[in-house]
Design a protein around this nucleic acid. Sequence first.
DNA 1: TCGATCATGAAGCGACGCTACATGGTCGAT
DNA 2: ATCGACCATGTAGCGTCGCTTCATGATCGA
Lengths: 309, 309
Amino acid sequence: MIEDGLWRRVDVAHLAVLRELAEHGSVTAVARATALSPSAVSQQLKVLQRRLGVVLVERAGRGVRLTDAGRALAGIAASVSTALATAEADWQRYRGGVGGTVRLATFHSAGELLVPGLLDRMAQHPGVVLETVDEDVLQDDFAGLTADYDVVVAHRSDDVVPPRRDGLEVRLLLREPLDVALPLDHPLAGRDRVTPADVIDEDWIAPPPEFPIDRVLTALAAQAGRPVRVVRRTTHLPLTEKLVARGHGIALLPRHTTRDRAEGRLALVPLADLRAGRVVEALMRPDRAARRSVQVVLEALVAEAASYA
Amino acid sequence: MIEDGLWRRVDVAHLAVLRELAEHGSVTAVARATALSPSAVSQQLKVLQRRLGVVLVERAGRGVRLTDAGRALAGIAASVSTALATAEADWQRYRGGVGGTVRLATFHSAGELLVPGLLDRMAQHPGVVLETVDEDVLQDDFAGLTADYDVVVAHRSDDVVPPRRDGLEVRLLLREPLDVALPLDHPLAGRDRVTPADVIDEDWIAPPPEFPIDRVLTALAAQAGRPVRVVRRTTHLPLTEKLVARGHGIALLPRHTTRDRAEGRLALVPLADLRAGRVVEALMRPDRAARRSVQVVLEALVAEAASYA
DNA sequence: TCGATCATGAAGCGACGCTACATGGTCGAT
DNA sequence: ATCGACCATGTAGCGTCGCTTCATGATCGA
């Protein structure tokens, strides 16, 4: 027998906390993200469980873990958040104005490429405050950033299956081929394309093996039939460009990002016989994507990215 | 410039009150419906307006009226209520049990026909408490009852455009032809159908002119070319049946409802050359329709009605 | 014009949720 | 194995919020 009105006393704020817990994984992390004390978060969870008469959270070692019921309710809470955000967006649409703070995470090269133009475009919406933060993480970790940021600009190589991003809104920003970067005085610099065989015996500068670009390099080696010789590994693209320009090696670099920054100081030559590129996209939680201010930022971001295609 | 976080402080309870105001039309009525004092309702509205910085309600004579903004927000509030009810239903589905109180309004004859069997069927769901109330109103007023009841069983004649019921969920229960009810010893009682011309010169018993059945009588008169002679007007169907059975006149009566009650005491003969019938349907507000307990009741109601088709 | 009806304001009270601080449990490093 | 760092939770105290009760003002119908 189920008592009537149990759910009536459930507060949407409590549901939101549960949902954040599902994404952040610890009470302390939720407290940080919500500007509350850990005790407050813990109390909210306790109240929620008492009102529903169900165990949602259990201790696991030093931290906590959601029970099955907790996970289920967290999923429901996510849809509630989305509905609430949609309602707010409808209201803002009715009122005409757009306002609020949007937190945007970019990896370095995308920030360099897109943020200046994005800020120019956002000048049309003085009510929207845009906070941009650089976060360079591995390909699979971008999704996790959506717990902390409204919009996450992520990249992945386009030859593999996309990493898991269940329940996230995804918007394509840029499809960016990887070109071979050569010093201007290199024999191949004038070519309109090069094959893997042309470049396999050069000295290469590449990122660490976990990064998408390096996987392309692996594919290139496979196609040429010989291993590639990597003389230096760095994740810092501007450094890579400078090294290439001075003849310390050649590299695979994203076309638009690089051209925007280093045009004229090195040559970018398309790679033949190998599909090599990376995809830049925006990731958002649905409730955040529903916010009017986020939508405005996203549209500006898409427009800015399109100007490089 | 829009300040950040205005909506954050908006309480869904406040939105719900605004929505109820849009449907009930007065602060006092909302207070009655929500078991709150009128002052509390008034204060909630005041707080909501202060937090949003918008006038939602204005005085109109002795009562209040919603502004345009108020109406817009009330519409948004309705979708929020629906989302919340859907979330609760999802949760109940996950937990397995069904519980809660469902308030059902029926007009008299439908109640007589459907409620006993409905209660039998609901015995399978002991957690659901069913309150049934008789409400006989005019055709166009059924929609208004959805503010006070979870499920409203309504009827309308099927030859006219349905009355306005914007934003309501509608579920067909019964399509019920109108037959000509005759005393058992009437000359036409043995016929398998009668035409308007056959019965136009009889003495008729009918409801008041605003009721759907009387409109059919008007159509019958138009087809026969002569006015119909109404000797008595009553909205009470059992009385009509008794009068017909004793030879005080004939009447148009809904087939299933009447047969269920008066089988063997009068004859029901289908009417030829005239599409005459009434439709019985269930009306619900979307947020109430989303509730798990309401869904259970509705399914039982549909099944019970189907047993009469 | 009077009484009924409706909305709103003021005062007081209770519930709720937060912070600050203390406690107990768990893991990693030495 | 021990210590220290970290994490979650319980307790005490306090401020805020929303409700009820009562009073007031406005409007409509008889």
